[in-house]
Amino acid sequence: MMTGLEDLYREIILDHYRSPRNRGELPEPPAHRTEGFNPLCGDEVVVYVLVDAGTVADIRIAGQGCSISQSSASLMSAAVKGKSVEQVRDLIRTFKSMMSIHEARLEEGDGEDGAPGEPVDLDSLGELAALQGVVKFPVRIKCATLSWNTLAQALDELETAGVS
């Protein structure tokens, strides 16, 4: 593999890309369906989430996209299934702060030595930590966060609807 790319395309990412977990649809209702788009590249993700008694009882991912957006969605689906909505929201926050480190550095105009933002507890992310290499490739950050933003939106919509 060429230099640098191994940070982006970790084996676990390629594995989730080739064999995505929780791929498909859920009947709605009772599941809730939310679409997310990346207008830059045309990638789209559809998140089906079933919330039962404050818990993400099931989740399915549809749509199409690059290896980063698809593997991130797959890893996300495996990580959130069975967790409480509150735990899922915490995980979304942690994941997005891991993805925002580089953006913060860019704004400081300092690519190397800039102080990162909130320290991110990578251990709490488990397999998701494999996606941290994405921050070295700023244009791909939106690929990695697409499914997470879509899930966050789905949870917001459910909250507004009084479901969770």
Binding site: M2, T3, G4, L5, L8, Y9, L40, C41, G42, D43, G65, C66, S67, I68, F137, R140, C143
Partner: peptide
């Protein structure tokens, strides 16, 4: 292979190509 992934790998070899819908979504 998704065009974004292609473009990313090509960039590592110094090769610049454009990946995306090229502002022509009806055509895509």
């Amino acid at each position: 292979v998704h065009p974004h992934d292609l473009s990313q790998v090509l960039d590592q070899a110094g090769v610049c190509v454009r990946a995306g819908h090229h502002c022509a979504k009806p055509l895509m």
